Computed example of a mutant assay.
Amino acid sequence: MKLQLIPLALLLAIATACDRTPSAPAAAPDAAPAQTAPQAAPASEPAPTAAASAPAVQPQTLPPEACKPEAYADFFNDYAGSPGVRAAYTAHTVRVGSLEQPAQARAVAKADYRDFRIGIVDSRWAYLDPAVTDPGAYPLLDLEFKPEGDKSFRVEYVQAEFDADDNVVRTIGKRAAYVFERGNDCWVLSQDLH
Rank of each mutant, 00 (worst) to 15 (best):
G119Q: 10
I6S: 06
G81R: 08
D129A: 01
E100G: 14
D115S: 15
A107D: 13
C186W: 00
D142I: 01
V169A: 10
L189F: 08
L62W: 05
A50S: 13
A109E: 14
L193H: 11
A88L: 00
A24K: 09
E161T: 14
F76R: 00
A54K: 13
S44V: 14
D19K: 00
S98M: 08
F145R: 03
A107V: 05
P42D: 03
S98H: 10
I120V: 15
L128M: 14
A26S: 12
L3H: 07
P48K: 14
A41Y: 12
A43M: 07
R170T: 14
L140T: 14
V155Q: 10
V169L: 13
L10M: 11
Q104A: 15
D78T: 02
Y79T: 06
A47L: 13
H194L: 12
A50I: 00
V188S: 10
A43P: 08
D122L: 01
A88S: 10
A24R: 06
N77C: 02
F180H: 04
V108N: 01
P147S: 01
G183Y: 02
L12C: 15
A24Q: 08
P139Y: 08
E148K: 13
P135G: 03
P29L: 06
K146M: 09
D192S: 12
D74H: 07
T133P: 09
P38V: 01
F153V: 05
L141N: 04
D122H: 02
P63S: 07
G81S: 15
F162Y: 12
L141M: 03
A31P: 00
S53P: 03
G81V: 03
G136F: 03
D185G: 12
P29M: 13
D142R: 14
F75K: 02
V85F: 03
A51K: 05
S53M: 11
E45D: 14
F76G: 05
K151I: 09
A32R: 12
Q104M: 09
T61H: 00
